[in-house]
Design a protein around this nucleic acid. Structure first.
Length: 651
RNA sequence: GCUGCCGUAGCUCAGUGGUAGAGCACCCCCUUGGUAAGGGGGAGGUCGUAAGUUCAAUCCUUACCGGCAGCACCA
């Protein structure tokens, strides 16, 4: 084959001509043997490729060494292959499937009768280190489709055969070898197994469905992670430990906020302090939406199932609804509400509504129950009974875009009060399971999209993820350690009001079905409380802290003064506790620090005589002595919720 | 729901085929101590539930309930 010459552009801007089909390795060697030695892969026009790939066209070329951030995914992917080889060496007959790189590492899914346990890890890791030490080169072969099918079928690798069949006709079947072991893989890989290094670790085992399909086989997945350097691996492991310390389930116990028990799986027992936090958040939302023109209501917890049949819930979401066992002498069956919308529609319907009444905004801190799958429950984040800061806005079709925009602004303003400015918006369109004509969906989606575009915010499409009654926007927050949480939502509903017989009278005296917007801002108060706990690692801002200050005595001589100080703090509007116990101040400081109390007001003989307090803030070991009244007014001011502070400043 | 692991005092955990232990927390006593654990004593558990194996089960088996991790699900 005659190849034309090609021109490669190097990172320093230099351009050189090479014969077509030259490999990256040849190019590197031509520059310097040491460059060739330390290069693990190349990037052509920014795309990673095997160093041994022939280059057939003009391109920008970069040589990637192990320490290059782009090499990290290669290290991890190579490690996944080595993991697979190790497992098949140790347990012949185990089938391999796929082993991709994920956010913090990699995994490999295996199929075998006996699942793995973490006790297997030392042996697997030792075998992996042996394979890495052999430092065999990764080599790529392109196989004809039939050969790949036959080879994998003969090896008993039925999952691989399925993968081969799933590769589109126009794509090559690539096989990567590392010594004798090989795997179907789209690559790229580094030059040899030795480049992986030793900064890797197997993390956990878990089940996972083949191809993510709960109807297919359950595979045994091994998770691992790998880094270029041992220090990076150590830092990652430390970071995991830190994340565990801010787990809201742990902090909930340590701060005495709430608990769960098995008689009520997925339902929260809120303790006084946790409920204080919850209500502080609820009251904040109550003020914000009251100012925005919402009227708060409350609808029944149990409603006859006929209403859920009419709304469409019974047909679509019966599985997750709690149905009440009927009494023998009562033929009616009731449903514990899984959503607030049908209740609000009833309130809208009560009394004739005029077009002049629109937009008609009803809000409710609605406690809903949903029978979530047992495996999905997770502390406050995923529960079976939760409180939505829910609202429904009844409007005309013409008002959709304007009202969606208002909701959008309100949501973003609220998040900003909690320091969340990095908010992502997802647009979810029609799902497969839905009610309503496609023409209606067209209209709803178009209106929502128009509002979204008018907001000027970046957004992404979540195809087919809409609610069964309409398309929606979802607001995703990123917390202090980079995790994403879906909270707020706005949903356009052109279906349910009509199904439930809601209408208003327009200016021509015609009955018209209103459009309904569903919206939530925190989403679930329970979840948002959990997010707050984890986001702040328990160090809540003063206005959210259930106990804002503790007055702690050093000796009992200061008891009377401490009582006085605590009473004064309460009069200033602070949530304060008093600790007169016969314990050393060291002990009290330790205990209240562990309970994450933000302000410790220490009083002894000196403070009692001078009418001062010795202040110790959470997270610092510094002390500051201030006159009592000055300290209290300063803390009272600091404890004002952000919306009320704005109101103060505006006044 | 699926796979795996787990369930012993309020919490964190140890332990054994012959009906249980530690630390912290709790109660009482001593101690009044100046910013992350002062000392002593006491009380507290039908070892998740139910069957089975066994002379004997907290320990072995099975089922159920609950939890954890992941997967699937999430109006």
């Amino acid at each position: 084959m005659i190849s034309k010459n090609i021109v490669l552009t190097f990172p320093d801007g230099a351009r050189r001509e090479y014969p077509g089909g030259v490999t990256g390795l040849d190019v590197a060697k031509g520059i310097s043997p040491s460059l060739a030695k330390r290069t693990v892969a190349m990037a052509l026009d920014g795309r990673l490729a095997d160093l041994s790939d022939p280059i057939e066209r003009d391109a920008k070329i970069e040589f990637v060494n192990r320490d290059d951030p782009r090499a990290l995914e290669l290290i991890r992917h190579d490690a996944a292959h080595v993991l697979a080889e190790a497992v098949q060496t140790l347990w012949p007959g185990t089938q391999v499937t796929i082993g991709p790189v994920i956010e913090n590492g990699f995994y490999y899914d295996f199929f075998r009768n006996q699942p793995f346990t973490p006790e297997d890890f030392p042996l697997i890791e030792r075998t992996m280190r042996e394979i890495i030490a052999r430092d065999r080169p990764f080599t790529k072969e392109i196989w004809p489709r039939e050969q790949a099918r036959t080879v994998f079928a003969d090896m008993g690798e039925s999952f691989k055969v399925e993968l081969v069949d799933a590769i589109p006709e126009d794509q090559q079947i690539k096989i990567y070898k590392q010594g004798d072991w090989f795997d179907l893989c789209r690559g790229p890989h580094m030059t040899s197994t030795g480049k992986i290094g030793n900064a890797f670790r197997l993390m956990k085992v878990a089940g996972a469905y083949w191809r993510g399909d709960s109807k297919r086989e359950m595979l045994s997945r091994i998770y691992g992670t790998a880094f270029a350097k041992q220090e990076e691996l150590d830092a990652y492991l430390r970071q995991i430990e830190e994340a565990e310390k801010r787990d809201h389930r742990r902090l909930g116990r340590e701060m005495d906020l709430f608990h769960f028990q098995e008689e009520a799986p997925g339902s929260v027992f809120w303790h006084p302090k946790g409920w204080t936090l919850f209500q502080t958040l609820e009251n904040y939302i109550r003020r914000r939406q009251s100012l925005a023109g919402y009227a708060e209501v409350n609808a029944p917890q149990l409603i006859d199932s006929s209403l859920w049949v009419a709304s469409g819930h019974m047909a679509t979401f019966r599985d997750v609804m709690f149905l009440v066992e009927p009494k023998e002498d009562d033929e009616r069956s009731y449903v514990v509400k899984p959503m607030n919308c049908p209740g609000h529609v009833q309130i809208f319907k009560h009394g004739l509504k005029s077009y002049r009444d629109l937009p008609f905004k009803l809000s409710e801190f609605g406690k809903v129950h949903r029978f979530e799958p047992s495996g999905s429950l997770h502390g406050l984040m995923r529960v079976r009974a939760f409180t939505q800061d829910d609202a429904h806005i009844f409007i005309t079709e013409q008002q959709i875009a304007e009202e969606v925009l208002k909701v959008n602004d309100l949501i973003l303003s609220i998040y900003s009060d909690f320091g969340f400015d990095d908010v992502r918006i997802k647009f979810s369109d029609r799902p497969e399971k839905r009610i309503g004509d496609d023409a209606v969906w067209d209209k709803a989606e178009a209106a929502l999209l128009a509002a979204l575009k008018a907001s000027g915010r970046p957004w992404t499409l979540n195809k087919g993820e809409g609610a069964f009654y309409g398309p929606k926007l979802e607001y995703v927050l990123r917390d202090a350690i980079g995790r994403d949480w879906q909270c707020g939502t706005v949903q356009v509903d052109l279906n349910m009001p009509g199904r439930l017989g809601a209408f208003y009278i327009d200016e021509h005296s015609n009955k018209v079905t209103p459009v309904m917007l569903h919206r939530a801002m925190f989403g679930s108060l329970e979840r948002f409380t959990g997010i707050m706990i984890e986001h702040y690692a328990g160090h809540l801002p003063l206005w959210l802290s259930p106990v804002q200050a503790v007055v702690a005595t050093i000796t009992s001589d200061a008891d009377d003064y401490a009582r006085e100080a605590a009473a004064a703090a309460e009069r200033s509007g602070l949530r304060v506790e008093i600790d007169l116990r016969n314990e050393k101040i060291n002990f009290k400081v330790r205990e209240h620090s562990l309970a994450k109390v933000p302000v410790l007001l220490v009083v002894g003989r000196k403070e009692a005589a001078e009418r001062t307090v010795s202040i110790r803030r959470l997270g610092s070991d510094k002390q500051q002595t201030m006159p009592l009244e000055a300290a209290l007014s300063s803390f009272a001011q600091e404890g004002v919720p952000p919306d009320l502070r704005r109101r103060q400043q505006a006044a």
